[in-house]
Design a binder for these strands. Structure first.
Length: 204
DNA sequence: GATTGGATCTACT
DNA sequence: GTAGATCCAATCG
């Protein structure tokens, strides 16, 4: 599994679509298929946390691939990322949306909806549903608490677009998602990134 | 020590 | 379509 993440981040971001995230909490298992990702690559990417250099907050991104980078933002939201590329090179893939598979009931308890297409749609929502917090920052994806597994299912068409919620660097098409998947986040159509997303969705 | 702004979501107009 | 919630990390003094 570290091999999978020790590759160019854009490839990893694309290949993560369709893979299954598994989170274990005691006897319970929560899981779902990844349907939307974004790549953040290196100190030269203005949208990547690593632009400011190595800090306590982004330390995990500089470490070995195949680990979780979890951080808090906007006062109420955790974001889940997977560290990619070789140790010493800061890069990660943000998980933006998931189609829930196991643990729907547990997720519904934590959210204000039980609609499977809304439960894990959006990066802040999926961490809330899976119960992922700052405690998970730096954990390896070894299947003990967090795991990522190949999915046998055939892959639907993949689209790409500018990254959402990003100012500098939003022109890079580093967001990947399954076209027309109901659990893909599509809000904020009024923003530049949002309009690009709609355009990308229409384009085949 | 204080300030500022952010890889967001929801509710409400 | 837009405001408010809400708190941490980075920056500045």
């Amino acid at each position: 599994m570290p091999r999978f993440f020790n590759r160019p981040t854009l490839k990893v971001a694309r290949d993560l679509l369709g893979q299954v995230l598994v989170v274990r909490e005691g006897r319970n298992t929560l899981s779902g298929m990844i349907v939307e990702t974004e790549a953040y690559i290196g100190c030269d990417d203005p949208a990547c946390h690593a632009v400011v250099g190595r800090t306590a907050r982004n330390e995990v991104m500089w470490g070995p691939p195949g680990h979780a980078y979890v951080y808090f933002t906007y006062g109420n939201h955790f974001m889940l990322n997977f560290v990619t590329e070789r140790e010493g090179f800061p890069a990660a893939v943000l998980i933006r949306a998931i189609e829930p598979q196991q643990g729907l009931r547990r997720m519904s308890d934590r959210r204000t909806t039980d609609d499977p297409t809304r439960l894990c749609r959006g990066p802040g929502n999926l961490t809330a549903a899976f119960g992922i917090t700052r405690k998970d920052n730096g954990l390896p994806l070894d299947g003990k608490r967090l795991g990522v597994y190949q999915n046998a299912a055939r892959r639907p068409a993949i689209g790409s677009s500018g990254r959402i919620g990003v100012n500098d660097g939003s022109e890079k098409p580093w967001r990947f998602f399954y076209l027309d998947h109901p659990a893909v986040s599509a809000y904020r159509k009024g923003t530049k990134a949002g309009r690009r997303n709609v355009a990308a969705n229409k384009r085949k």
